[in-house]
Amino acid sequence: MKAHKVIVIGDFGVGKTSLIRRYVLDVFSDQYRATLGVHLYKHSDIVPIDGTEQQVKLVLWDIEGAPLPGEQMMRYSLGASGAIVVGDLTRPDMIEPMRRAADMIEARLPGRPIGFAFNKHDIAPAPDDSNIAALKDRYGALITCTSAKTGDAVPNLFRDLTARIIGGKGGAV
């Protein structure tokens, strides 16, 4: 079974590692440890694709946080089948860094599905509908409010993105 590479990118401390650890290991720690370089996680899951459940294998690349996508992030993103852009709902200016990261993915990985994860939904409300609609229109992306702490919507985010990767729907909704 071929493994699919999924990159997880976003600013420092938005919860990229926490989201992956919640999905892969079903654990959460509130101790912040910055990721240096890249961490790799492997996870097998069963995902409903076109009405049938399929066994899939994902290699998740947890790339170190940066406010702007740099050379390192671009290098690590090569060959990815899909990407998750993570933002922190508690930060007022979270949308712009997410847009830039998504622009980088569109430029380097055209046609790959993108998922926007608005994290820390357990302590902050969802973004405005206008922002969500704008992101959907612009990138045709999955948009999910997640909480790595409670696990809310985390598996669905990864499964929906995987379904898009395998279903071949690309970035279009």
Partner: peptide
């Protein structure tokens, strides 16, 4: 070691060195 993770690690290392 897990071969998928090792493959990813090797590609990342090689990418870093090439960069």
């Amino acid at each position: 070691p897990d071969e998928d993770l090792m493959a990813g690690m090797i590609a990342a290392l090689q990418g870093f060195a090439s960069e």
